[in-house]
């Protein structure tokens, strides 16, 4: 643009180019998730790798099957389908049979993306939609948490169940910190929460590494910092108020933030640019809404964890939020309300 020489330039429309492309963003998110994924493999063994691989494969197969013939390769190359598969895999329990993870990835892309018209047209976060489907379809398998086995790279017995068959009795099953808190009033130490020595979904073990990935994404300008900040702040504030009422019954702020899938959801799923508001004001409203819903479901609802439903509900509200937070167009009068 600094070129002063008069020349005839023939270009078609996007004249200003940035390196901010969809594949780059997707690659960044995948890179940001790698440390947490590696930690999960350390804690849960190769079973976690199998679940992740199956869910990514399911997403890729669906992408390939339902892409128009002309752009079949392109929809796979931009990495969005793979990222959906990875994110879904991270929300699954490590002992899940591989065929269920595959089905989840497939459904994520079909119901979460393809039927809406492809990337950029979906209303709900595809990975979370896939998880919601799996949770409603296989409620027992989806809430069976294996005990962590740091450093032993074993495979969970459930992982290898034949397609359409049950996982079989695993013998020992662990519990998540949120489940322990809700049903047995047991508080997990913060250090274990932050570094991941806890049972739970593959991706929610290590809060610190998830935060690290979030910082990387923020530096690379791949995410709207307002959304995770407002979600985490709302959750912290909400639980602070509750603790002031009754410190025994309600979870402490830091416990609320580091337990369950909150960090994974707040940093990597709520910030999905397709399904979150585009305006800054909207991002704040969206984040506060997710935070309030998470706490309402966790504390007053029947389920120990509510991040998934909170984000899906706010996804549904996103078009409305966007409509009501449009900034005033320059030169136009402010609308009288």
């Amino acid at each position: 643009m600094t070129d002063k020489e008069p020349r005839l330039l023939l270009f078609h429309a996007p004249l200003l180019r940035q390196d901010m492309t969809t594949p780059r963003t997707m690659r960044d998110v995948i890179v940001a998730l790698l440390p947490a994924t590696a930690a999960a493999v350390w804690y849960f063994g190769l079973g976690a790798v199998l679940v992740l691989a199956a869910s990514i494969l399911g997403a890729a197969v669906a992408e390939w099957l339902f892409a128009p013939r002309a752009s079949r390769g392109a929809s796979l190359r931009d990495g969005s389908g793979l990222l959906t598969g990875l994110l879904l895999g991270l929300t699954l329990p490590p002992g899940l049979p591989m065929w269920m993870a595959f089905l989840g990835g497939f459904v994520s892309i079909c119901l979460g993306k393809v039927i809406w018209g492809g990337l950029g047209h979906n209303l709900f976060n595809p990975a979370l939609l896939g998880r919601a489907f799996l949770l409603a379809t296989f409620p027992i398998a989806m809430t069976t948490w294996p005990v962590i086995t740091p450093g032993e790279f074993g495979v969970q017995a459930g992982n290898l169940a034949l397609p359409f068959m049950q996982a079989g009795a695993d013998g020992v099953s662990g519990a998540t910190p949120l489940g322990l808190f809700k049903f047995e009033q047991q508080v997990t130490p913060l250090a274990e929460l932050a570094f991941g020595k806890i049972g739970g979904s593959i991706g929610e073990t290590s809060g610190a590494l998830l935060l690290l990935g979030g910082v990387y994404l923020w530096i690379r300008r791949d995410l709207d910092w307002r959304i995770p900040v407002s979600i985490l702040a709302t959750v912290a504030l909400f639980s602070l108020v509750l603790v002031l009422f009754d410190a025994e019954r309600f979870p402490a702020p830091l416990f609320s933030i580091f337990s369950g899938g909150l960090l994974l959801g707040a940093i990597y799923m709520a910030t999905d640019p397709v399904t979150s508001p585009v305006t800054p004001k909207g991002a704040w409203i969206f984040g506060i809404g997710v935070g309030v819903l998470v706490m309402l479901i966790r504390v007053f609802g029947g389920l120990p964890e509510g991040v998934m439903y909170a984000i899906l509900l706010m996804n549904a509200a996103t078009p409305l939020i966007d409509r009501y937070t449009q900034p005033r167009v320059f030169g136009h009068e402010a609308e009288s309300s």
Binding site: F133, A136, T137, P139, F164, M165
Partner: peptide, 14 residues
């Protein structure tokens, strides 16, 4: 149809 160890898809009944 599939024997006893079939994992039912609960969502389909709902």
């Amino acid at each position: 149809l599939f024997g006893d160890s079939f994992e039912p898809w609960v969502i389909m009944i709902l």
